[in-house]
Amino acid sequence: MALIEARGVSYSYNGKQALSGIDLSIGSGQFVVVLGPNGSGKSTLARLLNAIILPTQGEVSVDGHLTSDKASVFDIRKTAGLVLQNPDNQIIGDTVEDDIAFALENMGLHPSWIDSIITDVLEQTGLTAQRFSNPRELSGGQKELLCIAGILAMKGRCIILDEALSMLDRENRNLIVDLLHRLNRENGLTVVMTSQDTEDALDADLVVVLDDGKVVASGKPEDVRIVPESFASSVASMLRERNVAVSEEVVSEDGLLKALSKKGAV
């Protein structure tokens, strides 16, 4: 059975359709990357999977619990934790350990358990030396690691990252992507990552491409071929910004895969 399933999910904000007819199935232990340009509905999808918002049509289930079932909301959030884009807006504690403890305290765990879980996740994320530091004094990469540690502490089965790496430099970004792949491989943690960076999709088990609120392609990175003109051109512009030579022809003819492989080749 899939860990996360979306069936015919639509969502609209004040009459504007953000997502329409999304069907998605994410198996336990998969590494999934949701790609799409700004306004394609990635953040809306991430929030739907965490039961922060409910679909206006269709249904989302996480580990067999429907997000519309109010009694299951905390089980869903514990199973699939959400990390947002800007770490400064989600850090609550005055010290690193206090911030990680936030969810554990909310779960009503005994202080000694909280303490040992904190020790574990700090080790996993490489933040042990920063345990008593003020989170505001950490670097951008360390702040992001702290947000991930806060979710890992809940001992859930899935972590959803909503463009959580978009504010990081390449070095920190690679560090966190490596950590996510390691957790995915060694602990079987399901990772769902929304991104605009096509490079993130290269090592994924499943790539879902969103455009204008619809899934326009999904599958393994090498199978994702059907890309709409708008997204293909945005991929091209992203590649050009990084001085990767891509002709309009390559992008419009063969879509994302060629753009990706072209980039990978360079």
Partner: peptide, 26 residues
Amino acid sequence: IERAENLAVAMESRLYGCGEPTRLHP
């Protein structure tokens, strides 16, 4: 307002209001 909204989402997703909370350092 944007910060407050994001913080609310982050707190909800980290189980705020789940039950009777405990403290790491009573």
